[in-house]
């Protein structure tokens, strides 16, 4: 009897698992809230403000998806996840999507059975040095002491880079970013290396940020992007094209300021018309209504607006667009056509 109960439970779980994938959109609609996995706090990318509202560059993607699907950018339940719990949270269905500075890698995409829907920030490992050292390029770092977080890919990247360039270095192993900050400021190391967006936020906390410089060399590829589970392609399409809509909107000059005007009636640019649903039936193909992209873009502005508001050069983080500029401006941001 025990066995049959067990098998019955297994079947039920299997059935539920088999039935679940196709239904993320329906589930979200029925729930009325999008469960979006974020990190427990990365400056500029995700952090709760004084009123407890989550804000940031990654958070804007969640809000855009919620606005597109549920017509309410506030209908998001942000689930803080740590580096250890993020993938199980997504795989088990606790969250509908992850948008939390997660690097797109082969094994995560293939082996862990996730679907990275795109890239919203091209990050890479960089170096920060005090200006007074007079170093202008990473190739001049031979013999430097380097503060590095142990047990991370940054450590391996660093070893590779110095070996390839035939240079030597002395590592100062540290555990957390906070510790790195203290060690670096105390002069325990000449160089601090980690992802360049994190370097920027660390630098922004320094009393005299201008005394430190981030070297131009980027020695690894860290494409960060939102991801969903394998197996529900309809849902993956919605998240992917919501992100693409934000990127395309910037390229096409659609901003939160002029979107009301542009979406009121069909204009001269057919691609804008298709994006904003005044022409064609792209929204219908996604299983949403025609106005989906209008809501997504209105939620937090287009890609460029969101970038400037949270991590751009006028924020304390002060990141330049660099690789994250539109392809028309020499960057890598390139949305497939809305057709």
């Amino acid at each position: 009897m025990n066995k049959s109960v067990f098998i019955g439970a297994l079947t039920a779980a299997g059935l539920a698992a088999a039935a679940a994938p196709a239904a993320t959109l329906d589930e979200v609609k029925e729930r009325g809230v999008l469960n979006c996995g974020v990190s427990t706090g990365v400056p500029g990318f995700e952090a709760p403000n004084a009123d407890g509202e989550w804000e940031g560059f990654d958070v804007d993607v969640c809000r855009a998806v919620a606005a597109a699907v549920l017509d309410d950018a506030k209908a998001v339940e942000f689930v803080p996840t740590t580096g250890k719990t993020r993938f199980t949270a997504l795989a088990s269905g606790e969250v509908d999507m992850l948008s939390r500075v997660t690097t797109w890698t082969f094994s995560r995409d293939v082996d862990l059975k996730f679907e990275f829907v795109g890239v919203n920030y091209y990050d890479g490992q960089g170096f920060m040095v005090p200006k007074e050292l007079g170093v202008t390029s990473a190739t001049e770092l031979d013999g430097a002491t380097v503060c590095i977080q142990t047990g991370t890919t940054t450590e391996l990247n660093l070893a590779d880079y110095f070996r390839v360039n035939n240079m030597s270095y002395e590592p100062v192993p540290i555990e957390t970013q906070t510790e790195a900050q203290q060690q670096y400021l105390a002069g325990a190391c000449d160089v601090y290396t980690t992802d360049s967006s994190a370097l920027a936020s660390v630098r922004s906390s320094f009393a005299d940020a201008s005394a430190h410089t981030i070297l131009p060399e980027i020695i690894s590829k860290e494409p960060l992007g939102p991801l969903v589970r394998h197996g529900d392609n309809e849902w993956g399409d919605i998240v992917r094209w919501t992100l693409n809509a934000l990127i395309a909107a910037e390229e096409l000059g659609v901003t939160s300021a002029n979107i009301g005007e542009l979406s009121a009636a069909a204009g001269d640019n057919p691609e804008i018309n298709r994006l904003l649903g005044t022409e064609g039936n792209l929204g219908e193909m996604l299983g949403l209504d025609a106005q989906w992209a209008v809501r997504a873009i209105s939620a937090g502005g287009n890609f460029g607006e969101s970038f400037e508001r949270h991590i751009g050069e006028n924020t304390p983080i002060g990141l330049a667009r660099g690789l994250n500029a539109q392809w028309t401006a020499g960057g890598l941001m390139y949305s497939p056509p809305f057709r």
Partner: peptide, 25 residues
Amino acid sequence: SVIGLMDPIGWATAIRADTAWIGVL
């Protein structure tokens, strides 16, 4: 806080991610 629940330590981490308070510890 290790599993992502926002207890006082979890909130401390989140507050330090606010651009106004990076570096406060």
